[in-house]
Nucleic acid binder design. Sequence first.
DNA 1: TTAAATTTTTAGTTAAGTCTAAAAAATTAT
DNA 2: ATAATTTTTTAGACTTAACTAAAAATTTAA
Lengths: 218, 218
Amino acid sequence: MHSVSEENYIKAIYHLQKGKELVATNDIAARMDTKASSVTDMLKKLADKNLAQYVPYKGSRLTEDGFKCAIQIIRKHRLWELFLVEKLNFNWDEVHEIAEQLEHIQSQKLINQLDAYLGFPKHDPHGDPIPDSNGVMEHLEQIPLSQLALNKNSRLTGIRDSSTEFLQYLDKHHIKLGSVLKVVDREVFDLSCSLMADDKELHISKQIADKLLVKTEG
Amino acid sequence: MHSVSEENYIKAIYHLQKGKELVATNDIAARMDTKASSVTDMLKKLADKNLAQYVPYKGSRLTEDGFKCAIQIIRKHRLWELFLVEKLNFNWDEVHEIAEQLEHIQSQKLINQLDAYLGFPKHDPHGDPIPDSNGVMEHLEQIPLSQLALNKNSRLTGIRDSSTEFLQYLDKHHIKLGSVLKVVDREVFDLSCSLMADDKELHISKQIADKLLVKTEG
DNA sequence: TTAAATTTTTAGTTAAGTCTAAAAAATTAT
DNA sequence: ATAATTTTTTAGACTTAACTAAAAATTTAA
Ligand SMILES: [Mn+2]
Ligand SMILES: [Mn+2]
Ligand SMILES: [Mn+2]
Ligand SMILES: [Mn+2]
């Protein structure tokens, strides 16, 4: 159907589109570690195929078709990540690279069977929602820990950074999805926080607190 | 490491090499449904990379490196096929195309974990041997049913054709790996055979009998 | 509101992998 | 042994997806 390259551009636009009207060419180039001129070329192709709307010098956005395509790729990516963790004993910091490859395998039946095999899961190993076969996914009400009121109990439901480095930082401090987090103090100077994390004390920077997405408890 | 295209050529040479000293350029082209001129181009590249030995106008053969590479691709192909059948409820006639894609996923850990998950299987859904992580695979003593002596019991251990059409023919007649086959009569005229297949009578052409690989029983 | 800086596009190359058509080599038949 | 046929290679072209360098448009700053 679409080339691997096209799929990667579609995915990048999808992720950058959050909120914005139009996605800047340079932002796509930065995210994909490529040159802006290459992006422009591809945007024209995606526009020809009616996968993206392209306004020269202004930016681009996915069309209905492009959006559907993006959702399917993300569905595949997240199902494969979960498969690797649940069935093949991978750690959550090892799966992204492999899922980047697996998400381009073309077979509707494969992905639907995999979904069933995993029990129609709602979230991937990083807490991100998995679209169902109709492209519908859960929207979680979650806020960054940096915005959580003092002494309020919360549970970690997601993260804003799935890089190996960040995931390993969390592993090191025994923080995982579902961990109970409470901010007991927040420094006015640098907005760093003192936490109770699953009954263990921990002090983290604002930079980290921004990346921890939580749902308030009770 | 190697491109998908390179891997496909390596695999083709491997499969065509059986017995032969050198593989003909045209044979590779026929198997890959491409043109001989494209094959020549690739053979030069494989030779440059020391994956194949290329003798202009004579043919080609895999080097030690190329052979090892081929075995790893075949290991992946067959493990994925088994995964699809065993875990995702695919039929044996549906898995080849998908495995053709999955065999190019690059991750040593992935394939070793998959192997372990499947219980270090020795054979794929079509009876073909699966190389272990060192590239070692079982060599089965098996003969085509067309060469089996009359009234000798045998068991189906492999097939020489994994096309959807042939696999569906076998399904239709309830023949599967492990089926007990006995040739009760063979026509002198066309070498077609009357069989007892798992206690059911069946008459098959020589063309079919050539494709059924069996191991004699008792 | 003009000038400077930034962003984006265009133009021209490159590399991988494919193709067709023609030339060269090898094989087979006379 | 020569001719005809088949196989293989070469030459040149095309497509996709990159790149660099230069031009054009937009945004920001003076
Ligand atoms: Mn990921
Ligand atoms: Mn994820
Ligand atoms: Mn196969
Ligand atoms: Mn097989």
